[in-house]
Design a protein around this nucleic acid. Structure first.
Lengths: 361, 361
DNA sequence: CTGAAAGCGCTTACAG
DNA sequence: CTGAAAGCGCTTACAG
């Protein structure tokens, strides 16, 4: 209800031409201090705000929306929120905001929806997180629109697309070594969903550490927990029901590790002496669990910030909105191994009578 | 890189005037089927898309952004994400997107920032969550801008502002009754931050149930955990170190309840026999804890959806973007009490020798 | 350094 | 039902 005045009003009040007003508004050079001052004053008293629409009718850069989008695939939970917070931490400093959108990437109408979205709400750049990062449709649509984007993924999938991630394989390798150093030899593994690039890398890190230590990879000790608590519960049950049960269980994420702890508590195992458990990510619950979970701190917040940084430096570079350098930057952020109470040296277990063998499922 | 064609191109191809094209685009009446068909065909072949900027230079409705904003104050975590998901579930069906912004409401430059935000990124409506809901500055700025907003809060703070919430007092009351029904008489309470409207209501519900049961409110059994896990740890420690320690502890949220469980596990109390614990909210960790936490399911997702609904029905009503009805709607959504393993009937405890009294801190 | 003119792509009156 | 004209608020050439 405020901005009713136009450039003409300002020009009249300042006693100059509208062109001069335009020059001042756009901070062009070749304006005398006197003129500039007069125009500024007029703008102030009238509370004049240039109409964005009118400005962009004519050529002019397609007008920045000052919005960065975050697209993600699965419900995501805390992970999504941390990425956003990381993005915001950088965005707000330069006057940008963050828009979030869950993409139903498997739906047949996904492309039409997404094209509609990109036309309707203008955003200057986008961050994609797994499992969206390797979706060809999204890439194509974003490229068509000339919207730069950054992938949050451990894999540098394309030299054209910048990405940020952590070394998931190495982290998993280190965590496995930690268990091995504690004397564990029968170590079980709970895998995640294969559509997440990290799932494969984490498993590889585990395998590598086991191999290097000369430890066997018993297929009976590998389960697929799909990254979900509920799915991991029966997996943990099977693992711990084995006659020669593992002394340690490594889960590809904290949710599944939580499932292992739950089952172990229900079996009244004494933790961590009777069973060491490790997870991955360091979700808020990790510390709250009993015992507190040893895990890898996934620098999710930093990943969001780094992705936003990449986008913003390109967007704010002024000129050349052209393209990323080739090869596009691929950032690997540091992680921490968080040692808590859920891991302990393996105990020399008194040999016990073999239980009846459970049928493999 | 697509939409290069203008209304003139379309008019030429279709062999009509630009005015006719304009009419078809805007679905005006008084256009013959023939004309309409020809124009449609031309639009199709040219891939014509009217320029939003050009349309809005002239009068025309200020142009909807099709964006709903969610403003929140504290980091928020999973709560924030659930609100967003709820909002999205309604927004996407009608072509709206969700923008999120954390507001540093205590900063002195908050107002300037917020005014900048509201001018820069256009959003058609906003959802505010605690502790932002009763912030006068935000309200004023939004009202100045004529942007409708809905508060997510258990309190109907103003007849002008629509809100959605749950009956936090009643839920807390019910949960306390559950403990009392299990025979608990010494029930401790962990309070939350007073800047959250729910904190007070939850405490009132607890007090009411205690009073009605004729149970005393021992000040030594009330601690302030500030809704945070870390802060609640020492509180729980003090509570459980008392010579005549409580048989049940009620926490104003799940995070604090998790802290109680952690301390209890460390003291090697047998749960839930030796101590019943309840929380509030039903965060994802609630189920993962040992023992699984009895709590109130806060319908956060539904609150987000309901808030978005309120906004969208007003925005989509077409005409009259005027105002909310008076009094503005105040929706109370149902909650569930989730009974899990962390509560059990009180055990007749063998009287034990009094420990040395710990000094009140 | 300053300004009068033309034009951006579309819509609003106003005629037919 | 259709169209030629004028105009939205601003910017881009082009002169002074």
């Amino acid at each position: 209800m405020k901005s009713k005045s136009t450039i003409v009003d300002v020009a009249q009040l300042a006693g100059v031409s509208i062109k001069t007003v335009s020059r001042v508004i756009n901070n062009e050079r070749h304006v005398s201090g006197e003129m500039r001052r007069r125009v500024r004053a007029a703008v102030e008293t009238l509370g004049f705000e240039p109409s964005p629409s009118a400005r962009s009718v004519r050529g002019v850069a397609p007008q920045r929306s000052h919005v960065l989008a975050h697209f993600y695939g699965d419900p995501g939970g805390i992970y999504v929120n941390e990425i956003q917070l990381g993005m915001m931490s950088r965005a707000r400093a330069v006057g940008y905001s963050v828009l979030v959108e869950q993409i139903d990437y498997e739906s047949p109408e996904a492309e039409a929806r997404f094209r509609g979205l990109i036309r309707r709400v203008r955003f200057d750049g986008a961050v994609l997180t797994a499992p969206l990062t390797d979706n060809p449709m999204l890439r194509r649509v974003l490229e068509d629109a000339g919207t730069p984007f950054v992938a949050v993924t451990p894999l540098s999938e394309s030299p054209q697309i910048p990405s940020v991630g952590m070394d998931e394989r190495r982290a998993s390798y280190q965590l496995t070594q930690h268990l091995i150093a504690f004397g564990h030899r029968r170590i079980a593994y709970l895998r995640g969903l294969p559509n997440h690039a990290g799932a494969q890398l984490r498993f590889e890190g585990f395998q590598q550490a086991m191999r290097e230590a000369g430890l066997p990879l018993d297929p009976a000790l590998i389960e697929d927990g799909e990254f979900h608590y509920d799915v991991a519960i029966p997996c943990a049950g099977r693992l711990l029901a084995q006659p020669d049960r593992p002394t340690a269980i490594m889960a590809a994420n904290d949710e599944m590790a939580a499932a292992v702890l739950k089952v172990a508590c229900e079996l009244e195992l004494k933790l961590p002496e009777a069973l060491s458990v490790v997870g991955f990510d360091d979700i808020p619950a990790a510390e709250m669990l009993w015992p507190a979970l040893t895990t890898v701190r996934h620098p999710v917040h930093k990943l969001g910030a780094a992705a936003a940084d990449l986008l913003l430096t390109r967007l704010l570079r002024g000129g050349a909105p052209d393209a990323w350098p080739t090869p596009a930057p691929h950032l690997i952020l540091n992680h921490d191994i968080v040692l808590r109470a859920s891991t302990a040296p393996v105990l020399a277990r008194p040999s016990r009578p073999r239980l009846r063998r459970t049928a493999p499922s």
